[in-house]
Amino acid sequence: MSENLSVTVWNEYRHERDSDEVAEVYPDGIHAAVAEGFEERGFETRTATLDDPEHGLSEGVLKDTDVLTWWGHRAHEEVSDHVVDRVVERVRDGMGLLVLHSGHYSKPFKRLMGTSCALKWREADEKERIWVVEPGHPIASGLPEHIEVPEAEMYGERFDVPAPDELVFTSWFEGGEVFRSGCCYNRGSGKVFYFRPGHETYPIYYRDDIRDVLANAAEWAAPSDGPEPFFGNADPLEDV
Rank of each mutant, 00 (worst) to 15 (best):
R207P: 06
Y202F: 13
N216M: 13
A221E: 03
D208S: 05
G198R: 07
P197N: 12
E200N: 15
E200T: 13
H199T: 14
D208T: 03
H199A: 14
Y194P: 01
A217N: 06
I210P: 00
D225M: 13
G198L: 08
Y194H: 00
F195G: 01
A217P: 08
A221K: 02
Y202M: 13
P223Q: 06
D209H: 02
R211I: 02
R207L: 11
V213Y: 00
R196V: 14
P223H: 04
S224H: 11
H199N: 13
Y206P: 08
F195R: 01
F195M: 01
A222S: 11
R196Y: 12
A217R: 07
D209K: 02
W220V: 04
G198S: 09
E219R: 11
R211P: 03
D212W: 09
Y202W: 10
A215H: 05
P203R: 14
A215N: 06
A217M: 07
P197A: 10
T201N: 15
I210E: 00
E200F: 15
D208M: 02
E219K: 11
R207I: 09
D209R: 03
D209C: 02
Y205A: 12
F195T: 00
P197K: 08
P197M: 10
R211G: 03
P223D: 05
I204V: 15
G198N: 10
R207N: 10
W220A: 04
G226I: 04
P223C: 03
T201C: 12
H199G: 14
A217F: 08
R211V: 03
G198Y: 05
H199R: 10
A221N: 04
N216Q: 12
F195I: 01
Y205T: 10
Y206T: 07
G226M: 05
Y205E: 12
D212S: 07
P203S: 14
D209S: 05
R207M: 14
Y205P: 09
I210G: 00
R196N: 10
A221Q: 02
W220C: 04
Y205V: 07
A222V: 07
W220Q: 04
A215S: 09
S224Q: 15
D225R: 15
Y202L: 15
E219P: 10
S224L: 12
D209G: 01
I210N: 00
A221G: 05
R196D: 15
H199V: 15
D212E: 12
A221W: 01
W220F: 08
A222W: 07
G198E: 07
G226N: 05
D212K: 12
P203Q: 13
R207E: 11
V213F: 00
D212F: 04
P223E: 05
L214Y: 01
E219F: 10
P223T: 03
G226Q: 07
A217W: 04
L214G: 02
Y205D: 09
R211C: 05
L214I: 02
R211E: 06
A215D: 11
E219W: 09
P223R: 05
G226K: 06
R211F: 04
P197Y: 09
Y205C: 10
N216S: 11
A215G: 09
S224A: 13
G198V: 06
P197W: 07
R211T: 04
I204R: 12
G198M: 06
Y194Q: 01
E219Q: 13
G226Y: 05
N216K: 11
